[in-house]
Amino acid sequence: MDKQHKDGGPRRGRPRSQAAERQILEAVIKLLEEGVSLADLSIERIARTAGVGKATIYRRWAGKEELYVEVVRSMESPSPSPAGRCLRDDLVAMVDNVRVRGAAKQSSALLHNVFAQMQSYPRLWSKYHSLVIDPRRRLFDEVLRRGIENGEIRAGIDLEMAGDLFVAPMLVRTMLRPGRELPGPELAERIVDAVLEGLRPER
């Protein structure tokens, strides 16, 4: 029976909902750590491991792809929230987030394994991009567009290409050079300063 608020109304079940979501995500991670492949992960198996009903999972996620993406997102560092006060600071925070995420994938055997498996499932890989990667790209576009409006970046640049110029050097250092020493946070500042120098309005 629902507990009552002081005003006599029923207590909302938000904490219980968050607990169930955490149980489900932890169940998927537990199964992956035990060596269960993405192909063998089923909603039935996840529900049984989490101690919830299948309906509890389907109320939160439309299917396995969305659930898997949420699990991976929960294992990654969250996307930064640009403050909007300083273009350089916002860009440094976002580029350094690429470093943190790349370092985690390189140093975590579980994350590395999950990403390797995800790329073998086109639907799942596409879903990951639409729910995780695309919003981050749009965030870059918003920050760069604001820089143009403020006169900090010259007008007429290709926003998508400019975003790639900031992100690509960090991706190369953290993900395409396995075995090399992982870069520190100062690299984000060096990348941003170098790219911004080429994007500023002509004097």
Rank of each mutant, 00 (worst) to 15 (best):
P78L: 08
S79C: 08
S79F: 02
P80Y: 00
S81R: 13
P82D: 00
P82M: 02
A83I: 09
A83V: 06
R85T: 01
R85N: 00
L87E: 00
R88T: 10
D89E: 07
D89Y: 04
D90P: 08
D90L: 10
L91M: 11
A93N: 08
V95F: 02
R99A: 12
R99L: 09
V100D: 03
R101M: 08
R101P: 01
A103L: 10
A103G: 14
A104V: 02
K105S: 04
K105N: 06
S107V: 01
S108D: 03
N113V: 01
N113G: 06
N113P: 02
F115Y: 01
A116S: 13
A116K: 14
Q117N: 05
M118P: 01
Q119S: 12
S120C: 11
S120L: 08
P122E: 06
P122T: 09
R123S: 12
R123I: 10
L124F: 07
W125I: 02
W125Q: 06
Y128P: 00
H129G: 09
S130Q: 06
L131V: 05
V132E: 10
I133A: 14
D134S: 10
D134C: 09
P135C: 03
R137V: 09
L139F: 06
L139N: 05
E142R: 04
E142L: 04
V143C: 04
L144P: 03
R146Y: 14
E149N: 04
N150A: 08
N150F: 14
G151K: 12
E152H: 13
I153F: 04
A155I: 04
G156E: 12
G156P: 07
I157F: 12
D158L: 11
D158N: 14
L159N: 07
E160P: 13
A162S: 11
G163F: 04
G163E: 02
G163Q: 07
D164V: 13
L165F: 14
F166A: 11
F166W: 03
M170H: 08
V172G: 15
T174G: 14
L176H: 08
L176K: 05
R177Q: 15
P178M: 03
G179K: 03
G179P: 04
R180Y: 15
E181A: 12
L182G: 13
P183A: 14
G184C: 10
P185Q: 13
E186F: 12
L187P: 10
E189I: 06
R190A: 15
I191A: 15
D193P: 12
A194E: 15
A194I: 13
